[in-house]
Amino acid sequence: MKTTPNPSSATMKAVALAAGVSTATVSRVFTAPEKVSPTTRQRVESVAITLGYSTAPLFPRGITPRWRKVLVIIADVTDSFYSEIIRGIEMQASQQHCLITLVDCAHQSINRCLPETRGLPDDYDGLLYVGLSPSSLDRPPSLPSVVINEYSSDHDAPTLHIDNLSAAFNAVNYLIQRGHHRIACVTGPEDLAICQYRRQGYLQALQRHNLTLNPYFITRGDFTFKSGIAAAEHLLTLTPPPDAIFCHNDRMALGVMYRAKQLGIVIPRQLSVIGFDDIEESQYADPPLTTVAQPRVAQGEAAISLLITLMEGKPLINRSYL
């Protein structure tokens, strides 16, 4: 007997999964079909009919809701750390009737790429900075703005971030409790506030346990795999070498592990390594990398919610959101 799908059980996410597209694409099919290729539109519509998906929630009382346009400026769109943040942004944006435009600033300054973005600022309703600070701009646009993962006192935009100092402190404290006393630190760029807080957390953990700081145990990287290799080359040739290394991100930690293995050092028996961020690649290391996890999807979702509050002209109580 043929059964009819129950419309109430079909969701936008289910349609997206079945059609092999994002939820944002499903939304565009039913609200701005001219923005979707005919082939994709036909596939999504076919899946929606099969699943019994109803577009009624998108059109309350026959009125199409206004879709806001949000510009998302990303430090490096190819960096796997940002992928989960972007996913959270897109998931929440599709539910809140926001169209997302991504701008990558990895290979050009934010001051150069932003003015060249079509329609800015007149054609956009809000702005998200991901891994960047509005203070990096000579003239920040006068748009409702939210910053993700780059807290600074140099701007007034509300910021979503974790407590980097406490997270770093806990990571180093964990190493100390495991019996390590020669703990090195591979920092990120010193001009980034998050790196300053993580470095401070490292120092406070040493001080809490009355461990003497070896200045040669602090070396600077740039968040890349190669800089992790270079840091390990320096640290592991010291006498005595560190018995544990805390890195400001996972990419550098993976570089440290790679070079340590080349030197014949067994992890974790001879050297413990802790990263930061919990990117997907960390679980495929051998052994899997111990790392500090960040709620990146939740950060992306919360950023859209905060931005909508600002775009609606409502005041925010706080400037910093952990």
Results as ranks from 00 to 15, higher is better:
T219H: 06
D222V: 05
G201L: 03
R199G: 13
L206D: 11
A231W: 08
N214K: 01
Q200F: 05
A231P: 11
L236F: 07
R199S: 12
I218S: 05
A231V: 07
F217V: 01
L213M: 02
L213A: 02
R208H: 15
A232K: 07
I229E: 13
I229H: 06
H234E: 13
L236R: 05
T212G: 00
T219G: 00
N214T: 07
Q207M: 09
G228A: 00
N210I: 00
G201P: 09
R220V: 09
H234V: 04
D222H: 12
F223N: 05
L213T: 06
A205D: 14
L236A: 09
H234M: 04
P215G: 04
I218Y: 02
S227H: 05
L213S: 02
L236K: 08
L213N: 03
A232I: 03
K226M: 10
E233Y: 04
Q200L: 11
Y202S: 05
A231Y: 11
L206Y: 06
I229S: 01
A205M: 09
T219M: 00
K226D: 15
R208L: 04
R220Q: 15
H234I: 08
R199L: 15
D222A: 02
N210K: 12
L206P: 14
H209M: 10
L203W: 09
H209E: 15
L211E: 11
L235V: 04
I218A: 02
R208D: 15
G221E: 01
I229P: 12
F217T: 02
A205N: 10
G221D: 09
L206Q: 05
L206K: 07
